[in-house]
């Protein structure tokens, strides 16, 4: 759920996570600097080609991974068509698709603990300035750990609701879910204190 990572080990998996994150960030910024349609189309083709080490199945699956973006394609494309500026719209759409595809590629090939290590390394110089890097890293790891816990709780609450009522639960599950989060937080805080974690 939290990660899309492909279990097969490829050359892209073995690249250092920091390098991949830096390339992604650089790519995201660079692609914002140009509105040249040919350049943007080439950038998208380049990202698509970068899926090759994952195998042809993944290359073919990219359009389906991009599918959730269709509402934005319709809105942005439609607006610029109406205004008579289709090139600007096409550039915005290409930029969006290219960055989405590149971000997905990172997720397909990088584990979270590798990314967390990158975060700690980048932030280390700030720690003498009073930024509690270790504490932030702990909080990041805790959040990632508790997302599946809370998601499972949300599912249980929805099941229990459906057993009792033919209607949809809608917002009625929110209070018990928030309560679960607060109680889990109390437990986690107690556990941290018991381990005398200096956080």
């Amino acid at each position: 759920m939290l990660t899309l990572i492909l279990p097969t080990d490829t050359a892209l998996h073995r690249l250092p996570a920091g390098a991949k994150l830096a390339v992604l960030a650089g790519f995201g910024i660079a692609i914002g600097a140009t509105s040249h349609l040919l350049l943007l189309a080439m950038a998208f083709a380049l990202v698509w080609a970068a899926y090759l080490p994952l195998g042809f199945a993944e290359v073919a699956r990219l359009p389906r991974r991009l599918w959730p973006l269709w509402p934005f394609v319709v809105v942005i494309g439609g607006w610029h068509l109406l205004r008579g500026t289709p090139e600007v719209g096409l550039a915005a759409i290409l930029r969006m698709l290219a960055v989405f595809a590149a971000a997905t590629l990172l997720l397909l090939t990088t584990r979270f603990d590798q990314l967390l290590a990158v975060f700690t390394t980048i932030m280390r110089p700030f720690s003498p300035l009073g930024l509690p890097v270790a504490r932030i890293a702990l909080a990041l790891a805790m959040t990632v750990r508790f997302v599946p816990v809370l998601a499972a709780r949300a599912e249980d609450l929805a099941f229990a609701w459906r057993a009792r009522s033919p209607r949809k639960p809608r917002h009625r599950l929110l209070t018990p879910l928030a309560l679960a989060a607060l109680d889990e937080a109390d437990h986690a805080a107690e556990a941290l204190r018991a381990r005398s974690a200096s956080v």
Binding site: V74, A181, L182, A189
Partner: peptide, 28 residues
């Protein structure tokens, strides 16, 4: 510890609320 845990758990709650099925008010 309590503040840290509350902040972390609320971040997780925000993430989980994103998984809940969404309603399309208007298509798209």
């Amino acid at each position: 510890e309590r503040n840290l845990a509350y902040i972390a758990l609320f971040a997780a709650l925000i993430a989980v609320l994103g998984f809940l099925p969404r309603i399309d008010l208007i298509a798209g």
